[in-house]
């Protein structure tokens, strides 16, 4: 029982990283822009988060207690800023300069992973592991609620914020005029343009907001899971970014489904490490579990393309829009 509880609690924590990345990327892709820079942007957000935490820790006088909410808030604001910068660079190149999205995204990932690794390793990490532990104190008395508390109330502010952002994004995309316009831009940019929707503006804003949200995911991983201790531990943030891209497809471009999908992918990601000690000779099974998220994504992608062509990606995904081309 204890084992299941700690597994689920850990999975939810891990899912938060995916959820931010996937929600950001869904907003991005709904505007018709496939941003393969997301893994890099998540890493860049981690750099922003680390800088933010350093600044906060430096302002607190020695011996003074740290405020868990501020440990969440200050790095998050920095991560949003850094993620937004990453998103802006991507949209400047793809929207204004009409560059190929795949090429720009891959380059952005190379550049941002390089920059983030370089600077994160240079930042003084003193006090960050204590701050990382404090992050989980969103509900200090969670142990009183038994297994429910252990699983759902032991999480950090980031997790609750992530769910709020995903639900908010789902509502905006499905139920508001802005969301309708955004979908129109992603499905058919020239029709949207004729209907008077400012295509470029929508694409810019969607990419910047998407980048900002993805950046928070990277910061959360760096500050909580890796506890800000070593940058080697955070080496895999770009790998989570690619998994976030899988989740976008897996959840059929719907942020609400992405919440469940993130949890599922998180379970599959942490299961190998949880089960490894019990497998013995069958240790290769852990690799099959690691493969599962990608295979599942491919299955969803192909089944959707065979069964219902309309449910696939936004129709204009990856297509640059230049008015003169019409």
């Amino acid at each position: 029982m204890n084992y299941v509880v700690s597994f689920l609690a850990m999975a939810i924590k891990f899912a938060t990283v995916f959820l931010f990345g996937a929600t950001g990327e869904i907003i991005n892709q709904k505007s018709g822009h496939l941003n393969m820079g997301t893994p890099g942007i998540m890493y860049f957000g981690a750099l922003g988060g680390t800088i933010g935490e350093r600044i906060y820790l430096d302002t607190v006088a020695a011996g003074q207690p740290l405020n868990p909410f501020l440990i969440f808030l200050v790095p998050t604001l920095f991560a949003i800023l850094f993620g937004a910068i990453g998103g802006f660079v991507f949209s400047f190149f793809t929207v204004t300069l009409h560059c190929n999205q795949n090429v720009t995204g891959l380059t952005l990932t190379t550049l941002l992973v390089g920059i983030s690794c370089f600077f994160i390793s240079a930042i003084n990490k003193e006090g960050m592991s204590d701050a990382g532990l404090l992050l989980q104190n969103a509900w200090p008395g969670y142990k009183a609620a038994g297994w429910f508390g252990e699983i759902f109330l032991s999480q950090s502010y980031f997790t609750y914020f992530g769910v709020i952002v995903a639900v908010g994004a789902a509502c905006v995309i499905s139920f508001t005029r802005v969301g309708l316009n955004l979908r129109a831009v992603g499905e058919n940019a020239s029709s949207a343009d004729s209907a008077g929707i400012p295509v470029q503006k929508y694409r810019y804003i969607a990419t910047i907001i998407g980048g900002a949200i993805a950046g928070i995911g990277g910061a959360f991983y760096e500050l909580d899971n890796a506890m800000g201790m070593s940058f080697e531990a955070a080496d895999g943030i770009d790998a989570f970014g690619w998994l976030a891209l899988c989740i976008v497809i897996f959840s059929l471009w719907k942020p609400a489904i992405a919440i469940g999908a993130s949890f599922l992918f998180a379970c599959l990601s942490i299961a190998p490490d949880f089960f490894a000690p019990y497998l013995g000779a069958a240790g290769f099974v852990t690799y099959i579990l690691k493969m599962a998220p990608y295979v599942a994504t491919i299955v969803v992608l192909t089944v959707v393309s065979i069964v219902d062509k309309k449910q696939q990606a936004p129709a204009n995904l990856g297509v640059p829009y230049f008015r003169e081309d019409r």
Partner: peptide
């Protein structure tokens, strides 16, 4: 089927 995402996986 979208080949960009498929080959990436």
């Amino acid at each position: 089927t979208n080949e960009t995402l498929f080959t990436l996986m």
